[in-house]
Nucleic acid binder design. Sequence first.
DNA 1: CTAATATGCAACCAAGAGGTTGCTTATGAG
DNA 2: CTCATAAGCAACCTCTTGGTTGCATATTAG
Lengths: 124, 124
Amino acid sequence: MLPKNSNDLVSQWQAHAPVFAALGDVTRLALVAKLSGGPPRSIAQLTEAQVGFAESEESRLTRQAITKHLRVLERAKIVRCVRRGRESLFEFDPKPMEELHTYLELVSKQWDQALDRLKAFVEE
Amino acid sequence: MLPKNSNDLVSQWQAHAPVFAALGDVTRLALVAKLSGGPPRSIAQLTEAQVGFAESEESRLTRQAITKHLRVLERAKIVRCVRRGRESLFEFDPKPMEELHTYLELVSKQWDQALDRLKAFVEE
DNA sequence: CTAATATGCAACCAAGAGGTTGCTTATGAG
DNA sequence: CTCATAAGCAACCTCTTGGTTGCATATTAG
């Protein structure tokens, strides 16, 4: 897709793809929104907090389903987990999403520059 | 996860999750990088352009695989497709990624505010 | 007009994702 | 100390994803 010497770009894609993928699910977006808005929370609390989000009791996910999603976010380093007694507490880490933010700005700039080149070309 | 009256937040998640998911793959990130850096390109061109990205001839994806990825990006509205003669040309649309950018800023701000509340609380 | 090129489509396959259930272990509240 | 709570783990199931192959159709270059 790009010359081989753009290895830093390739390694950016390899770093960002898992973070994008981790955010590519409504449940995980909801978990991230919850955790980024306050203190660390346990699995039980996050499972309980579906009240209000899920339309009915039947559409709530089990604790194990929430745990699976939290592990996906943990692997993408969007959250970190600390065990305290019988509770696993999950805390938001803004860094990976800040890096996505930066990456999206880079793509946007690249597009703007491509448009500028096209415009300049058309006006020749 | 949040009170039921935050339906606009829920609809944001439902809108953004597919875009994040579409970007959650190295091949699709490479395609987006390529398309955001220049003019519309055909499937054949994008398939050919793997030279340099893929380490070897053996690791290149088939045209059908590239097409599948482009359809994923098309469904997320990151690219749009125009048929010209025998060619399907794909063009970058910056809007969905700009919306992700805005969303990431919102999450970051939410986190900063949560930290401020914690700090204020600790200093009481 | 013909051959080359570009693409669409479907079928196939293996792996992974997302969810549940059942059970066990560890911790803490009372 | 006991019971409630929190969590871990594995197995299972269905669906989706990501890739390939084979073949057909449409368009265009020569």
